[in-house]
Design a protein around this nucleic acid. Sequence first.
DNA 1: CGCTTACGCACAAACGTTTGTGCTTACGGA
DNA 2: TCCGTAAGCACAAACGTTTGTGCGTAAGCG
Lengths: 351, 351
Amino acid sequence: MTPRKKQPTTTPHTVSMADLARELGVSMTTISRALSDHHSIGAATKQRVLKLAKKLNYQPNHLAAALRKGQSRLLGVVVPYIEGKFFPSVIQGIEQAASKAGFSVIVCQSHEDVQIERRNVETLLHAQVAGVLVSLARNTQEFHHFDKVRARGIPLVFFDRIPTSEYVNSVVLNDQAGGFAATNHLLEQGCRRIAHLAGPQHLNIYRERQQGYLNALAAHGIAPEEELIIYSDMTQEDGAQATRQLLMLPTPVDGIFGAGDSVILGALQTLKSQGIRVPQDIALAGFSNEGFTAITEPRLTSVDQRCEEMGEAVVRLFLELSTAPEAQFVQRQVVLQPELFIRESSLQVPA
Amino acid sequence: MTPRKKQPTTTPHTVSMADLARELGVSMTTISRALSDHHSIGAATKQRVLKLAKKLNYQPNHLAAALRKGQSRLLGVVVPYIEGKFFPSVIQGIEQAASKAGFSVIVCQSHEDVQIERRNVETLLHAQVAGVLVSLARNTQEFHHFDKVRARGIPLVFFDRIPTSEYVNSVVLNDQAGGFAATNHLLEQGCRRIAHLAGPQHLNIYRERQQGYLNALAAHGIAPEEELIIYSDMTQEDGAQATRQLLMLPTPVDGIFGAGDSVILGALQTLKSQGIRVPQDIALAGFSNEGFTAITEPRLTSVDQRCEEMGEAVVRLFLELSTAPEAQFVQRQVVLQPELFIRESSLQVPA
DNA sequence: CGCTTACGCACAAACGTTTGTGCTTACGGA
DNA sequence: TCCGTAAGCACAAACGTTTGTGCGTAAGCG
């Protein structure tokens, strides 16, 4: 911010361990070990080194260390996208936990495209990341691009959208519990004929949410009906479309549980435009607790995904893997419990 | 994804330039130069090297290159937060442009805290980034933590929220034009007494938006009134608060232009709860074109910020700076033009 | 007093690149 | 024939760390 200077005041040469060594008349070994608190260095020497380092404003070159040690202090994250609430919040949690552990975070988006996802993984490997944290693209059906990560012995953690394989480390939400809670709540509010707007079934999260829905029905002795489950990519438009379809059924529905919030938003808008009252005629519940659920009219009941906790858990798992010996042969899965946020879209007014 | 293997099939040693050199019976110099298309290497040799590199699946170690050259292919980005629409979209644009140029992106959040912002910059310098791209925290009033970046000769580009100094490279939206367009539109819809929900004035963007508002009034020969401009941090709650304040004025307002969308959302909710009709009684226009502007009732008119274009422009500017000699002495500013998205919250129904 | 042990430190070889310098070879012009 | 020139390549020194090994000294023990 200072005005131009023809000559920089300090030498362009940043101060390195060699400088410290020269100044103190010891070897670089001593410097390195003193800085990393190695046991073979005396307390007095450590003090001297630390003091000088501070005085000269020594900045360690992580690159060199990374090169030497074969791994950096960088964490690679691959997510489908960063719009909406979920992924930013998870990344938020990851960043926080990572920086606490001295790691920085690289974020890549796959844009729901397995091709780009592949490239992202390559990029991260090129950057010599210390770990790879992934939430899969929608259309990722095979997982060979992750083999390289394992081959290099780099910890690999999946979160939320995980591969259909038991040989992975992962952090997930208990989506089934979420689906159950939402559906169960609708049932408790008096709904008896509840539709489900489901997502692509090859993604674990949507399968689980649907299973939760089915379990809740079963728990109340209600038989599932095929025509009440509508599959889509869960956009707002998909929700509108599905709702129109539901409204044409001979027997009307009195509740809808959506595997996402956008799809429920589409439903809400369609219902209102048709003059159907929410929640009196049809109650609604969604999934993700997006920001907009609190500003629709009525506000939307939704399942919160503990986004930041998930991010922290992912980093914790990574740290475990990277310290544990033979970590690549351990398979761990962390499961977080969702929380149902109940709002007016599902609250039966006392009649 | 494959089941456990006691022994990795390939040697843990990744293939390096030395391997290529040995295989081809040439020196590493030749390999390096062939790969980087140096002129002193014959076409035939280049072919041989490239072919072998592909065959052995050679992956360059960017770290080593970065170490040797003193800079990496990493771009550091510091933003206040990544919730909402604006920053994710800008980052999106940055990522896209960066990866096209062979760079990866590290994203850090300052959480609107200059302390953390300082730390972020340090972190990025430690990671030996090739460039630093910053949007300032709300409370950043002094800019010495960026001096180090310049001192190292690393390109520094600010975007959207930029320092109050002429000695910076920056990409900004023409916020003034945006403020003008929105206010002008309200005026054209028949509003005559327009309030402005303004943001913190030490941030350039909010000053500009307000100036646009004032200019539009002036252009229509309307004198600004102090009591119609309310300053806040522009949260939803701030909007509600400000609106209650406006409603207590002796002379009623008939339009509100907010420097953000959240603050206008707060206004909308308050107005509706008081039975005041939007836009018939009071028309509304916001800023940012957030996702939720399309789902409120009525939908909100708002100024779009060309987020992705901004991201691309930031990277373009960075690239210019990093190639241009003596680039640190060039001061460039790119200004993008906003676009007004007109929706029902400001459309005067034909009476 | 001699032997072991622990401690505090230095030597030097890595890690995988890039790059200034200098050597060879072949060729054309004078 | 000889010199200048250019092309094509190799040598070796960086970049800033980490770390296995080894050497000296002092303390602990019998």
